[in-house]
């Protein structure tokens, strides 16, 4: 799953807003991210986003936009604003596996000879 990061690049949005024609401001509907589950036991995966004013509308729209071809048994809709993403700069220590921390790996643990563990 990738981080949506809609607020990432403020410059461009400001440019566009400054140039926009004077259409009535009709309360832009908030953005929601949609996650779909394709079969029992599978994780929910990010499918895309859409605009809706509330949960009920978000669910219905998600079903129409992302699930109308079938192959979806469960939908999650989340306000985009509710998602916290790691930032691009959080590489390295933030994500590095504990390579020095052998206790997370099966090889750390010895079993007595002749005993099947798994």
């Amino acid at each position: 799953m990738t981080s949506p990061g809609h607020a990432a690049a403020g410059l461009g949005a400001a440019d566009l807003a400054a140039q926009a024609a004077a259409l009535p401001v009709d309360g832009q509907w908030p953005l929601w991210e949609v996650f779909t589950q394709s079969e029992q036991g599978a994780p929910h995966e990010h499918a895309g986003s859409l605009h809706a004013v509330d949960e009920e509308q978000a669910l219905q729209n998600a079903r129409d936009v992302y699930a109308r071809r079938g192959g979806v048994i469960s939908l999650w809709v989340v306000p985009a604003a509710a998602i916290t993403a790691s930032s691009a700069g959080d590489s390295g220590p933030f994500f590095d596996p504990g390579a020095a921390k052998a206790y997370r790996h099966p090889q750390f643990y010895k079993a007595p000879r002749g005993v099947r563990v798994l």
């Binding site: 949506p4 949005a13 566009l16 926009a20 024609a21 259409l23 895309g48």
Partner: peptide, 16 residues
């Protein structure tokens, strides 16, 4: 929705 990830607003884009 993909364009919006770049910081653009759907309403603004449509206005254009």
């Amino acid at each position: 929705c993909g364009v919006e990830t770049l910081g653009a607003d759907r309403t603004d884009i449509i206005a254009q």
